[in-house]
Design a protein around this nucleic acid. Structure first.
Lengths: 198, 198
DNA sequence: GTCTATATTTGGATAGAC
DNA sequence: GTCTATCCAAATATAGAC
């Protein structure tokens, strides 16, 4: 565990990642993971305490990567709209570069393991988004509704667009911008309910 | 299968439902399902061809119930805003009355079984929402963006609010209305980008 | 149509040689 | 730190009596 070569450990995680993304958690058996990683089944346990440990490490690793990517060039002093757009687009791009990770994270979240995670890894990003929300509310730009809900609306288009891309769809830049805008509109205070209601 | 008493079949499905909701698919073994249903394990196979058949039937049953509920009192000729609000609130209420079903449906969707489902059960509702979207776009009320995305934004608050309720949170009527409004705003054409951007 | 008992397979994990 | 071999537990599914 401590002395393992990083390469091997990474190989195991990548094998697990692609198998879960392709066939779900039930399809990612230790036998298949080892096989895909080019290792013997028993070798997995030199790098991870058990299967749960592997999956949990993988989840935290993914969340960490996206968190890092999202904060690249993030200006905490900018306007709520600028900050929203920046975060949305960098997170979108980060997951787009590793679509398997998006699917893995969603499947992981529907697993009892998610309870053991405690939301730690997830909370880093949620914290940034909540902070943005609070600033926007104070500035009168965002609706004053529960952070959980806004975060969910933030991610919904990212998940939908990217999962469609996995099955072949390819989005244009304009469509991606529209999706970001739709998410933003769900956060934004509509000026006196000015949105058209026919 | 054909001659089974409806009661027993329902009992098995309810047992599977609550176990999946509580402990995920991995936790819902045939042994536990049978035990919870007050039956012998072997008896399951008199009512369902196999475990996949059970889970698939359950998924279709849930989707069917919600679909039925959503269309109660739905006026296809009403305004886009009225129709949106009606569907959102009835679907919210339907799942709220059976929160386990919501969790089950989400977990099922992350399973390879979802591929075998073909989206049939899911499409009934998607079709209604797409039709609403098209009418709203034609009327200039809704953004002209991909239905998948709008459907995702439609469901996001429902899922978030109700999953929070499972873990103890209780929402006020006003908060629920705000959530519906946030989803609506994501669909709606903002009058010339009038939403405040600070 | 339900039960008991069991067949069959596969999964996770360990032991010990190299 | 990787391999081979193996153990143990658990899960799906079936057989056959009642």
């Amino acid at each position: 565990m401590l002395t393992s070569s990083p390469d091997t450990k990474t190989k195991i995680m990548q094998a697990a990642l692609s198998l879960v993304a392709a066939d779900g958690f039930a399809g990612a058996t230790t036998a298949r993971i080892a096989n895909k990683a080019g290792l013997a089944e028993g070798s997995i346990y030199r790098h991870f305490k058990n299967k749960d440990d592997l999956m949990l490490s993988l989840y935290r690793c993914i969340k960490g990567e996206v968190f890092q990517a999202a904060l690249q060039g993030y200006d905490k002093a900018a306007s709520p709209h600028t900050r929203f757009t920046h975060l949305w687009q960098t997170i979108f791009s980060a997951y787009r570069a590793m679509p398997d990770s998006l699917v893995f994270a969603q499947r992981f979240a529907e697993t009892p393991l998610m309870g053991k995670e405690g939301g730690k890894a997830h909370n880093d990003m949620a914290c940034v988004l909540t902070c943005l929300r609070d600033d926007g509310v104070a500035a009168g730009a965002f609706k004053d509704i529960t952070p959980d809900l806004l975060i969910s609306l933030f991610y919904a288009p990212i998940i939908t667009l990217l999962r469609a891309e996995i099955t072949g769809r390819q989005w244009q830049q304009a469509e991606i911008k529209d999706a970001c805008q739709a998410a933003y509109d769900s956060w934004a205070v509509t000026s006196g309910n000015s949105a058209v209601k026919l």
